[in-house]
Design a protein around this nucleic acid. Structure first.
Lengths: 212, 212
DNA sequence: GTCTATACAATGATAGAC
DNA sequence: GTCTATCATTGTATAGAC
C-alpha cells in the first residue's frame, strides 16, 4: 500500500488512462441515473472515447458496472483494515470505530450513496453483486466488540446481539441523514451525542419517566 | 372509509378491472426490476392486455409509475390517520406507535421495499416523486411526541430532537433488517427489547462500564 | 375501452481498418 | 488500443378499426 493515498476514491494522479476515464464516467452516471437508465453511449461520450474502447476494457456493460463496485469496495476495505487497534471501554471503542467509519463515509458520500442504492435497489434491474457479506461482517464485528467488552456471564449472547444492533441503528441513522438530508445532518458531534443517549439511557439523560 | 378493508394493498375484491390488473402487474415488475429495466411490453403482457390499454388508462410509462406510488402512499396514509390517540408515558406511546408502524410495514413488506428503493435510488433513473415530505412528517411527529412528554424546561429542544432521532434509528434498523435479512429479523419483540435498551441505557442494562 | 399494426428512436454489441 | 460504420433488437408511443 506504499505511496497509495487511500481513504478517498479520487483519481490516481497523473494523466488518467482510458480505463480510469471510463470508470469515472461510469460511477458518475450509474450514481445519478442507475444501471438500466445509463447507456453505454452516455458513458463513452462523457469519457471522451468510443464504444469499442469500453468493450475492449470491460467486455460488456455489466463488466464496467461490476468493476466499479469492486473498486469502491476495495477502497473501503483498505481503510477498514486499519481498525484492528481499539482499546478502552466499550463506549470508547465504539465511538472510535464509528467516528472512523463516519469520516470515511462522509469523505466518500457519493460512493456510499451508490452502494446504498445498489443494496436497496430492485434485484432484477442490474447485475447481482454481493454486498451482504461485507454488511454482515460489519455487524459481526460490532457484536464481537460488545461481547469482548463485558466479563463472561455478565451478558448473554442474545443481549450482546441486541446491543450491537442498537448501536448500528444509531450509526446508520446518522449516515442516512447525512446522505438523504445533509442539511439535517447531525455530524460527528451528533453521532457522539446519540451514542451517549444510548449508553446512558433516555430515562437517565434528562428526565425520569415523566407522564404527559 | 366504510367497507374499505385497509391496512394492506390487496386487490379490491370482485373481478379486477383492466386498470387494477395493470397496477398490479406494474407494482410487481417495478419492485423486482425497477423503473428503467421494466418495459411497457412486460407490464401489459403480465396483465393479459395490450399496450394501448395502458396508454389509455395512464397516458405514459411515467403515468402508471406515479399512479402506483400514489396508491401506496394513500394506503399508508389511511392507516396512519388512526394514530392520534396515544396515551401513557413517553415509552408507552413510542412503543405503541412503533408497533403499529412495524405491523403495518410488515404486512406490506414488498410495498415498503419498493418505497425504500425509490427513496434511495438514483435521482435520474425514474420520474421524480416526493417521499421526503412524508418522511419528514414522521420525524416531526416523533419529535413532538418526545417534546410533549417532558415537562417544560426538563429537556432542551435540541435534546428532544436527538432523542427522536435515536428512537427512529432503532425503529428503522428493525424494519431494514426485516426487509434485507428476514431471517435475522428481530420482530416485534426485538423492537421492544431494543427500545428498552435505549430507554434504560446500555450501561444500566446488563453491565456497568466494564473495561475489556 | 380494447384491439392490430406500425412508426421511429435508442439500445447493447461487433466487424474490420488503422 | 482506439477508431468508423453498422447490426439486430428492443424501447416508448400512436393511428385507426371495432
Amino acid at each position: 500500500m506504499a505511496g497509495r493515498k487511500n481513504g478517498t476514491l479520487a483519481d490516481e494522479g497523473n494523466a488518467p488512462s482510458a480505463r480510469q476515464k471510463l470508470l469515472a464516467a461510469g460511477i458518475d452516471l450509474f450514481t445519478t441515473r442507475g444501471y438500466s437508465a445509463t447507456s453505454v453511449r452516455e458513458i463513452v461520450e462523457r469519457a471522451g472515447l468510443t464504444k469499442p474502447a469500453l468493450y475492449y476494457h470491460f467486455g460488456s456493460k455489466d463488466g464496467i458496472y461490476l468493476a466499479i463496485l469492486q473498486e469502491i469496495e476495495r477502497t473501503f476495505a483498505a481503510t477498514l483494515a486499519d481498525v484492528d487497534t481499539l482499546h478502552g471501554t466499550l463506549r470508547e471503542k465504539v465511538e472510535r470505530l464509528f467516528l472512523m467509519l463516519f469520516d470515511l463515509f462522509e469523505q466518500n458520500l457519493s460512493a456510499v450513496r451508490f452502494l446504498t442504492a445498489v443494496f436497496w435497489g430492485p434485484p432484477g434491474g442490474a447485475p447481482r453483486y454481493d454486498l451482504e457479506t461485507t454488511h454482515r461482517r460489519l455487524v459481526l464485528f460490532v457484536q464481537q466488540l460488545v461481547a469482548d467488552s463485558v466479563p463472561d456471564g455478565a451478558m448473554t449472547p442474545a443481549a450482546a446481539h441486541d446491543s450491537a444492533l442498537a448501536l448500528i441503528g444509531i450509526f446508520s441513522l446518522t449516515v442516512d441523514l447525512e446522505m438523504a438530508h445533509p442539511e439535517w445532518g447531525v455530524g460527528r458531534e451528533g453521532l457522539i451525542r446519540l451514542l451517549g443517549l444510548l449508553f446512558e439511557g433516555l430515562d437517565q439523560t434528562s428526565f425520569k419517566e415523566n407522564i404527559s
